[in-house]
Simulated scan of single mutants.
Amino acid sequence: MPTEQEIAMEQQVETRARRLWRAVEPVHAVTYFAPESKEACDALGTKGFWMSYFALRAAPLGAAPAELVTALFYNFHPAMVARAVPDVWAVAAPERFVAARLEAVDAALRRLLGADVLSSPEVAEAAGIARDAALAAPTAGRALAAANAALEWPDAPHLLLWHAQTVLREHRGDGHVAALLSAGLDPVEALVVFAAGGSAAAEKLRERRGWSEQEWAAAVDRLADRDLLDGAGAITDAGRALVVEVESQTDALADVPWAAVGDARAERLVELVEPLVAAIVAGGGFMVDNPMGLRPLTSAG
């Protein structure tokens, strides 16, 4: 359950871009959280969840080295990335992982939503709005967004919706990295201060991103030296203000696509995807306890 602090912050800073991210992101998240994706990667020869994750997310870049993947994904420990990349490209070519993730997402959405829903005019309408937003997303300086935008667009409406959101979420993520850099937060410091602000449980976040207890503690000390955390490791007013600044900048950088489609169509997309997201969450296609601290925007929350 979200803390009172999380809910208050959400209500305080929720913008059009953040609202759309919360509304549509679970459509993309099946890429990693639905079992079909890991099964597809296992069939190609990957070992474990993280090898499949790095393969599926990095594949649009081509056979990228670990250093590039680490740089673009930003908050994973370099050694964690290096355990999967570039070995994964010896398992199968990036193009095969691109194809595998599309096939897996297709299977997952068919299972979670059903054929009648996927063939509905509502899904087709949602896909059209999301596509227009994604096509309006600028990719200059945004490598992950550009790599996904360069892929062939699917024809089926539910896959078109998924692909559009994939471009949009990587567009947002690339902008988030720019905001973190502007704030002077290195990868582990970003995790520490956001965990201290209540976005995610610190220990789970540390483990999921591969940082040691010593590296985490050193980041706490650096942040305390900047008065962003206090002596006990709790976030200060200055730290909370910096988190809000980073999130506000992230939202501002992510808003261009939604400005292009306009408020009416953006809100129509929220309305159209709400039952889809509710079914995805109910069917286990989205990790509720996720490292992003994302609470899906549904009628329940």
Rank of each mutant, 00 (worst) to 15 (best):
A201V: 09
D106S: 10
V188D: 02
G284T: 14
E103Y: 05
V243I: 03
R226K: 14
L276D: 09
E39W: 15
A259E: 13
A66T: 14
G301S: 13
E125M: 09
N290G: 09
D289H: 13
E4R: 10
L44D: 09
M51E: 15
A71Y: 01
K38H: 13
G62E: 10
V281M: 09
D221P: 01
G45V: 15
E170I: 08
S182D: 10
A100D: 01
V123E: 06
A126S: 01
R169D: 03
V273A: 02
L118F: 04
E25T: 09
S299G: 06
A64S: 05
P187I: 01
R101S: 14
G301E: 11
R111I: 06
A90L: 10
R142T: 01
L180K: 05
R83W: 02
H28P: 12
D87E: 15
R222P: 12
F54T: 13
R209C: 09
P296G: 12
W162Q: 02
A82W: 11
E103G: 11
A218P: 04
A134F: 11
S182V: 12
A55G: 12
G198F: 00
L229S: 00
A282M: 07
L72H: 04
A143Y: 03
R222C: 00
C41V: 15
K38M: 14
A224K: 02
W153V: 15
V30T: 14
A224N: 01
S182N: 04
V193I: 15
E6S: 07
G198P: 05
A147M: 10
E122P: 00
A108S: 12
D106A: 07
A241V: 05
G285L: 08
R111P: 03
V30F: 11
A241K: 03
R83T: 09
R172W: 06
P26F: 12
T236V: 06
N290F: 04
G184D: 06
E10W: 10
E36H: 15
G283L: 07
T15Q: 15
L68Y: 01
R209I: 07
R222N: 11
N148L: 14
S248Y: 05
R96H: 15
R172L: 00
A219K: 00
M1Q: 06
A143N: 07
W50V: 13
S52E: 06
H77C: 12
E207P: 05
G231I: 08
V27F: 12
R240H: 05
F33M: 07
H158I: 10
G231P: 03
P65M: 08
T139G: 04
D106R: 15
A164G: 02
P86R: 04
F76Q: 10
F49Q: 13
V30K: 10
A58Y: 07
F194S: 05
F76V: 08
A55D: 14
V273G: 00
V85T: 07
L159V: 04
R18V: 12
L223K: 04
A23D: 13
V261K: 03
A79C: 09
G141F: 13
A252Y: 08
V192D: 00
S182M: 12
V243W: 00
A140I: 05
L160N: 00
E14P: 09
I129H: 01
A93G: 13
E95M: 03
A134G: 02
A40C: 13
N290Q: 06
